[in-house]
Computed example of a mutant assay.
Amino acid sequence: MKKLILSLTALTLAFTSCKDDATKKIDQSNITAAAERDAVASKFPVIKFEKTEHDFGEIESRTPVETVFNYTNTGDAPLVITDIKSSCGCTVPQDWSREPLAPGEAGKFTVKFNGSGTNKVTKTITVTANTEKGKETVKITAFVKPDPNKTTNAPAAH
């Protein structure tokens, strides 16, 4: 038992006596690099749209229409848009830049709507980017009038 206690005491002394002051092992350049990395990591691009909704008003059924959504990067880091998708296939976003957009720079994308649907129609366009939220949305709306050339199958009067 004495040997066990003596061994444990020697082992404890060996570990505690080998410890140097931990602050002497810190490399100041690593602290600076970590601080810069953390400062940059907290900076995000911010996409600010000129408008977040566009109303086409009344349109004839199957009449294609389009609009442009303009935006500016008002954040502190380059903005990268990786994807733009619509809530359905009748609305097609296109023509956006996949290149990083520096803070203060502006960009745009076009949204084409084929005029499908009836009455009040709303479509959501989701912009996937490196913003803090990761996804931003804009909307288009229209009142689609019935196709005048399409006949309705109304029940015959007797």
Rank of each mutant, 00 (worst) to 15 (best):
K2E: 15
K48F: 03
I47W: 02
T12K: 05
F69C: 09
A33M: 01
A22D: 06
E36A: 12
K139P: 04
C90Q: 10
A14W: 00
I26Y: 09
A35N: 13
A154K: 11
E60Q: 11
K112P: 00
A33T: 10
T72F: 01
F109C: 01
I5L: 13
N30M: 13
G104P: 01
P100G: 08
G107N: 04
A102L: 13
T137Q: 14
T141D: 06
I26L: 13
T124L: 13
T72R: 07
V80K: 11
A157T: 07
F113S: 01
S17W: 07
T91F: 02
T16K: 09
T32Y: 05
M1L: 04
E99V: 15
A10L: 14
V65Q: 13
D21H: 07
T126R: 06
F69T: 04
A22S: 10
A157K: 08
T16S: 12
I31T: 09
S61E: 04
K139L: 08
K51R: 13
V68S: 03
L79M: 06
K19T: 14
S87M: 13
A14Y: 01
L8P: 09
A106Q: 15
T91S: 15
I84D: 10
K123H: 15
L11Y: 04
V127C: 09
D21M: 09
R62G: 00
K112H: 00
F56M: 01
K112T: 08
K145W: 03
A41M: 10
P103C: 13
S7L: 14
P64L: 05
V80L: 10
T131C: 06
C90P: 05
T152S: 06
P155D: 06
K43A: 13
